[in-house]
Design a protein around this nucleic acid. Structure first.
Length: 271
DNA sequence: ACTGGCTCCTGAGGGC
DNA sequence: TGCCCTCAGGAGCCAG
């Protein structure tokens, strides 16, 4: 799925086209996503003006009318702006039709994504309230990671992918940050030094920023608001490169399974 | 409290 | 060509 850089790419592409725009209708073609799409969304949002589009971790917060629409892209989701008359494909589950006859269209073949609604502060919503700090904002650094890792025996990669520890990091960027920091992904989180967590936090931020600049990573599904893929894939050092030589030392990159996820690393560079 | 495993769903790719 | 198996960018939930 879209991890933080892909969601941020989507947000940046959509925001100028949505903010200040009025919603003409909401069309729900398939309401069974990760959770049921709330009933009567059309009644809640028809005629409402989009006040803003924010991001928290991998969630998009579309503020409109009397509340906020919470959007999650799951593993395979994408949001695009299309002419409202464009015939929907089989996995185009929802449209927000805008006053200018454009439509924000949610496409998600695997349906692990979500559309929720709240009238309260969206940051207090149960799905968002427990999220850890944003990795690109203050409040996230090596000291924070080190503190959260204390006494824990889970693989350090699983710690990075735990949204309660840090928001928005998934399988790709966890693997990339660990490679760049020279840390073995299976190492117990509590046995990584403070100094190495400083490096890890720094490398993670670099990788996320560089990916945002490149428009994110497209493996198969991801496209931005205008339907274009992201270009960071060619900058990935280890993700998806098992069996190939390490870009730093030439050793063959190995693959293992951690917390059910494929994990590529360099057995020489990462300890 | 922690941890690992299972689960939701569709589609692509590899092996035979 | 076709069938079957495994795996894929997430993350909530459950049992041990």
């Amino acid at each position: 799925m879209p991890e933080l850089p892909e969601v941020e790419t989507t947000r940046r592409g959509l925001a100028p086209h949505l903010e200040g725009r009025r919603i003409r209708a909401v069309v729900v073609r398939r309401s069974r996503l990760r959770w049921p799409v709330p009933a009567r969304l059309d009644r809640r949002l028809r005629g409402a003006t989009v006040r803003g589009l924010r991001r928290r971790g991998k969630w998009l917060l579309l503020e409109a009318g009397s509340g906020t629409l919470l959007l999650h892209l799951g593993m395979s989701g994408s949001l695009r702006l299309v002419p409202a008359a464009t015939p929907p494909g089989p996995h185009d589950h929802l449209d927000l039709v805008l006053e200018d006859d454009g439509a924000l269209r949610l496409h998600d073949p695997r349906r692990f994504g979500a559309v929720l609604w709240t009238r309260d502060d969206p940051l207090d919503h149960p799905r968002l309230a427990g999220l850890g700090p944003e990795p690109l904002e203050s409040g996230f650094d090596g000291a924070w990671l080190h503190a959260r890792a204390r006494g824990r025996r889970i693989p350090v990669k699983a710690l990075l992918m735990d949204g309660r520890v840090v928001a928005g990091v998934g399988n790709i960027y966890a693997a990339e940050a660990l490679f760049r920091a020279g840390i073995h992904p299976a190492r117990a989180a509590g046995r990584v030094s403070r100094r190495r967590y400083d490096a890890l936090a720094g490398r993670l931020r670099e990788v996320l920023r560089a990916s945002i600049r490149a428009g994110g990573t497209s493996l198969r599904d991801f496209v931005d608001a205008r339907g274009r893929p992201g270009w960071y894939r060619q900058r990935l050092q280890v993700y998806g490169r098992g069996g190939q030589p390490c870009p730093a030392c030439g050793t063959v990159l190995r693959e293992l399974r951690l917390a059910g996820r494929g994990t590529v690393y360099c057995p020489r560079c990462q300890r």
